[in-house]
Design a binder for these strands. Sequence first.
DNA 1: TCGTACGTAACGAGCGTTCGGTATGTAAGC
DNA 2: GCTTACATACCGAACGCTCGTTACGTACGA
Lengths: 202, 202
Amino acid sequence: MPPAPGDREARRQDVSEAVWRVLADKGFGGLTLRAVAAAMGVSTGMLMHYFPTKRALVAHALDLLERRTAERPRRARPTEGLAALRAMLLDILPLTADDTARNRIWVSSWDLALADESLGRDQADRYTRLRSAIRPHLEAARDHGELPATADPDQLAATAVAFTHGLVVQALFDPARFPPDAQTALLDTFLASIAGPASPSA
Amino acid sequence: MPPAPGDREARRQDVSEAVWRVLADKGFGGLTLRAVAAAMGVSTGMLMHYFPTKRALVAHALDLLERRTAERPRRARPTEGLAALRAMLLDILPLTADDTARNRIWVSSWDLALADESLGRDQADRYTRLRSAIRPHLEAARDHGELPATADPDQLAATAVAFTHGLVVQALFDPARFPPDAQTALLDTFLASIAGPASPSA
DNA sequence: TCGTACGTAACGAGCGTTCGGTATGTAAGC
DNA sequence: GCTTACATACCGAACGCTCGTTACGTACGA
C-alpha cells in the first residue's frame, strides 16, 4: 500500500530507526544516505522523500539523539538531594546496551560539534542545561547537611558532570573494565567523597 | 633544490605540521588529502611520495598526536603524592592554545576510535596507561596521609581521569565558562574533596 | 484522472589513488 | 670533464569510486 497517506510520520520513524542503527556502529563519520537506505532495505530516493537533504537528515539524527535521550526510561527520583543526583547520574552512565548505544552516538557527535560552530554552541548549551538541572539537588543537599556548608553548587555541578562524562568515555572504550557495578561503585565513591567526612546532620 | 636527498624526514615533518593544522580546525572528519595538500601549498601527488596511502597518513596523524602529547612541555613534578597528581592533571587540561588544539584532536579522534575496533583498543590501552601512571601518586598520597587510609588507588585513578577528561570536554565546548583559572579551581576543589576532611598527618 | 509514494538511473562534485612528465641531483664511463 | 644513465622529488591530469542530489518512470489509492 504505497500511497497510504497519513503514515508519513510512521515512515519517518522507520528512517529514524535505520539512522540509529547506522550511527551506533559507524558513528557520524559513517552516516551516509546509502548506508541508511541499505540498513532499511530501500532506495536513497525514498529517503529524499522524507528528508529533502542530507543536512535535514543529520539534523533529524541529532534531534532523534536528543529526543531519545530526553525520553529514555529513567529510574525514579527517590528524594531530593544527593540521592536524586545519584539517580540522575546513573541514568547517564552506559549501564545497559541502550545507554551504551546512546552514549556512543553522543561521543561520536563531538567530532562534528567541534568542527561546526553552531553544533558546538548547541553542545555547550546542553552542558549548561545539564549543570542547571543538577544544581538544585546540590543546593538541597547542602541545605540538608549532606554537603559541607561551604560547598559551591555551581562548581560541584560542573565537577559531577565532568566525572560522569569522563567515566562514560572510559567505559565506552573499555566495557570489560567498567561493567555496570564498577561504574556504580565509582559513582558512589565519588558522591561520598564530595559529601565530605560523614554527613553531620540528618 | 628538489631532489635534495636526506631531508626526507624533514619533509614528513612539514606534512605533519599541515596535518595538525587541518585536524585542529576540521577534525578527523575533515582530514582529506587535498585539504592537507592545500594547507601546505603542494599537490596531492607530493603527499603520496611520503605517505603511500591515506590510511598511512591517518596512522601518521595518530602517531603524531600521541608523540606531541608525550613530548608536550610539562610543568615540574614538584613532589610525589597529590601535588604530583595535580601537576599531571593540569598538564592534561586545555589551559593554553596548544593544549586546546591537542585536546580537540583527541576528542575528534574518538569518532574513528569508536567505529574501528583496533583504534578503540588503542584508546582503551592509553586510558589504562594513564591510570597506571596516576596510581603510584595516589598510593604515595595515601601512605603519606594525604588520603584516607581506606582510599582505593585504582578507583581513585579512574575517578581522577574521568573528572579530568570530562572537564576537558566541557571546557572545549564552552571555553568562556571554563577559563584556565576556573579549570584550575575546579581541579583543586576536586582534589581537596577526594583528600577528605583535612589532611590529618604530615 | 490526479497526486502521492516510491524505485531506477543518472548527474556533478569530491574523494583516494594512479600515471606520465619534468625537473634536479648523484654516479659511472670515456 | 664532459656526457650518459639513473634515481629522486614533485606537479598536473586523470582514473574509478562514492557521495549527495536530481530527474524520470511507474504503481497504487482516492
